[in-house]
């Protein structure tokens, strides 16, 4: 039995229907435990006060924002090479989740940055990279929406995802280079400020990260299922029109 069997939409729907309840439950437990523990059961940081607690939202969201793109990249490659529809639709389904995670990371970062750095936004390499990632997500989703034929849309967005990944990496290094060049040894304490994490902060953070990962997985499975059903409905509609 090969993993590729689940590239068949019907089999995929069956498996994902069986897995999803557990996945949702596990995700909910991890997110709730991680956040509640993080918000209420950890001490305030001696330097950052209670603001540090936004880390339990910020870091997992940022992590998933990048991993979602990575997942889309792998799914796009699978579509281009093996032409499994589920793969293309999974990439399509992951994009809105990824962009939401990016926005959460950016917004929580701004809320965290305001009391810490005295500014909502700084053109720090890390922040700027996320802004660029946001733009890439935006373009990817817009291209999916703009192309009528679903297979052509899958082809085009897959290539865009590949090319975009290369340019996203290039941008990351360009941005690092650019800001050093501007500030000549910056004095702004960067998002690593809260990363001197001791165990008290670390365990809830890990639980929260796992929770966000599971949540992402559940959301993508759910959304992929919706996309598959949409395609199925369209396929059936096309057949019934032809017979009539």
């Amino acid at each position: 039995m090969s993993l590729w069997e689940y590239a068949n939409p019907v089999k995929f729907l069956g498996l994902s229907a069986r897995v999803q309840p557990y996945l949702w439950a596990a995700a909910a437990i991890c997110v709730v435990v991680g956040l509640v523990w993080g918000f209420f059961a950890t001490p305030d940081d001696f330097r950052q006060g209670s603001t540090v607690k936004i880390i339990y939202l910020h870091v997992p969201a940022a992590l998933m924002a990048i991993n979602a793109w990575f997942m889309m990249l792998v799914a796009s490659l699978i579509w281009l090479i093996r032409r499994h529809h589920v793969s293309a639709l999974a990439a399509k389904a992951a994009a809105p989740v990824g962009i939401t995670m990016t926005v959460i990371a950016l917004v929580t970062g701004a809320i965290w940055g305001q009391p810490m750095w005295g500014t909502w936004w700084a053109w720090d390499p890390r922040l700027t990279s996320f802004l660029i990632l946001f733009l890439f997500y935006l373009g990817y989703i817009a291209l999916w929406e703009a192309v009528d034929d679903p297979d052509t849309a899958a082809d085009l967005t897959s290539v865009l995802c590949l090319v975009g990944s290369v340019f996203a990496v290039l941008s990351r290094y360009a941005v690092k280079f650019w800001n050093q060049g501007l500030h000549q040894g910056t004095s702004v304490p960067v998002a690593t400020g809260g990363r001197t994490v001791s165990d008290v902060f670390f365990y809830p953070l890990v639980i929260s990260m796992v929770g966000f990962g599971l949540l992402f997985l559940a959301l993508v499975l759910y959304r992929t299922g919706t996309e598959i059903r949409l395609r199925r409905a369209r396929a059936l509609l096309a057949r019934s029109k032809k017979e009539a």
């Binding site: 297979d151 396929a235 032809k242 017979e243």
Partner: peptide, 14 residues
């Protein structure tokens, strides 16, 4: 033919 759907790009969804 309508029933001859082999090869259609959306065949996998039926």
């Amino acid at each position: 033919k309508a029933d001859q759907r082999s090869g259609a790009s959306d065949e996998a969804f039926l």
